[in-house]
Amino acid sequence: MNLTLKVWRQNGPTDKGQFKTYEARDISSDASFLEMLDIVNEGLESKGEEPIGFESDCREGICGVCGMVVNGAAHHSTPRATLCQVHMREFKDGDTVTLEPFRSKAFPVLKDLIVDRSAFDRVITAGGYISVRAGSAPDAHVTPIPKVLSDRSMDAAACIGCGACVAACPNAAAMLFTGAKVTHLNLLPQGQPERYKRVQAMVEQLEHEGFGHCSNHQECVRACPKGVPLDVISLMNRDFIGAQFKLRS
């Protein structure tokens, strides 16, 4: 199949950037979306032109590196898939496809479709962990954890930190990402000692990074390739409100 690509090209963080048009020719419908871009890029490289900058690593939907906005949808509109899991059979011959970077003040564009998501690292650094020194852990069976609780925790822990929630959110909020980590750890017995300190610190960092607020549009949940549920946000809200009382008593 043949496609026309409208691609955001931006040379560096300070460059203004603009859309450029490229043609993708003779693409197999079995190719993945990123392989289609590989082909376009190889064509550019062999002509000595700079390829379109985009990121990917594991190409099996778990590392969270890939991601851009394809035809207005973070990771394309395919449900529960990262961009590397999208295949060309979802497109039609002759389609025009628009490729933009994730847009958020907290995710500055580094080049073309590559953004800086280090804000996520800083949110985790603020408190997204359980403090336990290597070697100091008790036996794993000391605290039985009800399966239901453990499963809910896992649902939240499935987050891959790709940033699609931010990209899709009309407010560019990172509430789903942060809520996922808060929920993962705050539901577990091991997470209780730092429960309120954690949520307070993470939310403060979140604000500091310039992410927006949650209006419960649920765009994030639908864009999330891992199906992290919306409830993680309300759990974070509850704990954050709770923290205002608990941390002061």
Binding site: A137, L185, L188
Partner: peptide, 19 residues
Amino acid sequence: IDQSVAQGVPFAREYGGLL
């Protein structure tokens, strides 16, 4: 295994709450 559980790694569990 002990270390990971203490860190909050949500390993699969049985209904009795054990790993």
